[in-house]
Amino acid sequence: MKKLKSMFKIHRIFIAQEFKRMMEYKGDFIVGIIGFLMIQMSNLLFLWIIFSQIPNLLGWTVNEVVFIYGFSLIPKGIDHFFFDNLWAIGHFTVRKGDFDKYLTRPVNTLFHVLVEKIQIDALGEILTGIALVCITIPKLGANLNIFRILIMIVLIPFITLIYTGIKTITASIAFWTKRSGNIIYMFYMVNDFAKYPATIYNRFVQNIITYIIPFALTSYYPALFILRGENSLFNLGLPVLAAVVLMGFGILVWHKGIRAYESAGS
């Protein structure tokens, strides 16, 4: 318990430090947030143009598709906001030998890496996601009750852990190969599949994004429950299970990786 308290304290100190840094480069973070906002706008424009040509997408209405898209942005954005530092591990921290500094500190390395930085750019994703969900919810029909919305909110931290878990696993590969940035990138591109209802894909892709690289669990399945109240055990249980398994496996691989880590660079 005492340890947990001290961890929170460390986290607070790191975040305060980050805010100081950000205040110094205000322009940077405005540029970053606008950049991420623009990416979302471009995706929405794409959806809007497509839906101006067709009545629905294989039975999905524009509001449902936008809801799934918006919902997928929230956990993704939260992971991006808090745990973006894992990208740096994969891209250059290990390769340049800078990882040594974490080993010399009296806190758990993974915890240290996770809390060290926050990525304010992610607000562009989180805000768009929240806005889209709020705009589409009233249009989705009356069978959407408070209970389901509460479940949705409870689910968000678990879904965030799916992202963090996958990122921890792929970043850890750098301990063996010195560099895994593009492996993380590849997994992130799989995440593109999560933007749309999974029924537009064929069986093979559906299985992959459900059971192997489970990004469909981050938006499509929870949305199925929220929108239609379908199959709650599967649609809610699987994301939670995946979050626990992936994060657990991530922690395991990370610590195995640290034992294999040999300092690099100069």
Partner: peptide, 26 residues
């Protein structure tokens, strides 16, 4: 590293393919 990067981009192509397929059949 380059191969993984390209694989990532190729995945984006597959997403496009499926979405357009759904659009055309809708």
């Amino acid at each position: 590293n380059w191969i993984f990067y390209m694989l990532g981009n190729a995945l984006a192509c597959f997403v496009s393919y499926f979405i357009w397929k759904a659009v055309y059949s809708s």
